[in-house]
Design a protein around this nucleic acid. Structure first.
Lengths: 151, 151
DNA sequence: TTGTCTGCAAAAGCTTTGCATGAAT
DNA sequence: ATTCATGCAAAGCTTTTGCAGACAA
């Protein structure tokens, strides 16, 4: 596993350094997929090792450039990173517990193209995040019928 | 017009001060709808008047709370403000010139509800931004067929 | 050895906040 | 007169950057 990580890094033209290997294997080892720079920094550290914020951000940026990670903004204005090893997808985030689900719906793609044509836009991508209550948190939802009300 | 602004402010429980009236009438006067705090600060100022960043941010926040403005993040992680006087809508932004179009497509609403059900989510809102090339900038687009390629 | 990377700390960009002064009611 | 808002400047939070020492190849 660690060997693969080193080779993967060299494959994309990066030296196999401790910070880069740690960060990359961190993403590969987790079941959860979405992390901020702070998450990574905190969870990658142990008694023997601390990686500076500067390096964390630099490494994350390089991995994004190498198309090993993707970055975007989901909740707040903080950048969130995820492995770029799955097909294009959108996100649904629970406003109560923060859980993130990924989904893909081909109809959104078709629809977005049509909308683009209506506007004269040549659409090349989108950022779509659904906000709602996940299975575990539905009980805490205020109303009952699930209709749009946010921005 | 200025009178309306003062009354509108009092209606929502805010004193009719110069910074608040200036900011609100700024939004009402523009054809363009989307501004950052810096935009507002810069464009509201003239030789006789300068409103501090602190006040700009405080006023914008209050107007959002009063549901006169909405806030969100469109391009980057900078907060963008717009009048809350139109129905719910999404945004399309030109990656070349930055122009922003608003649109509403009921099929997205229906679709988002279905996707939510598939995930067990009770969807209450969404953030959807299409990225593409506007009419004037289509010529600069790299490929030709407009398919998704971003996050 | 050589060129690249890291840690540190400082800076940068955006937004928020504390406090004394000043304005609205 | 009282209460609330503003300006200023400082601080907060996230992210970026410069530089000297350290490491990978």
């Amino acid at each position: 596993m660690s060997v693969d990580v080193a080779e993967e890094l060299r494959r994309v033209g990066l030296r196999a350094t401790v910070p880069r290997m740690k960060v990359l294997s961190f993403f590969l080892d987790q079941k959860q997929r979405h992390f901020t720079a702070e998450d990574v920094c905190r969870q990658v550290a142990d008694e023997n090792l601390h990686i500076s914020f500067g390096s964390i951000y630099r490494v994350l940026q390089q991995l994004v450039e190498a198309k090993i990670l993707r970055s975007g903004t989901l909740h707040s204005t903080r950048i969130v990173y995820e492995l770029d090893n799955t097909p294009d997808h959108d996100h649904a985030i629970c406003v109560s517990c923060g859980q993130i689900e990924e989904f893909h719906d081909p109809l959104f793609d078709a629809r977005q193209k049509e909308v683009g044509e209506r506007l004269g836009f040549l659409v090349v991508g989108r950022q779509l995040v659904l906000h709602g209550y996940c299975v575990k948190c539905r009980a805490f939802a205020p109303g009952s019928t699930g209709n749009s009300g946010e921005q």
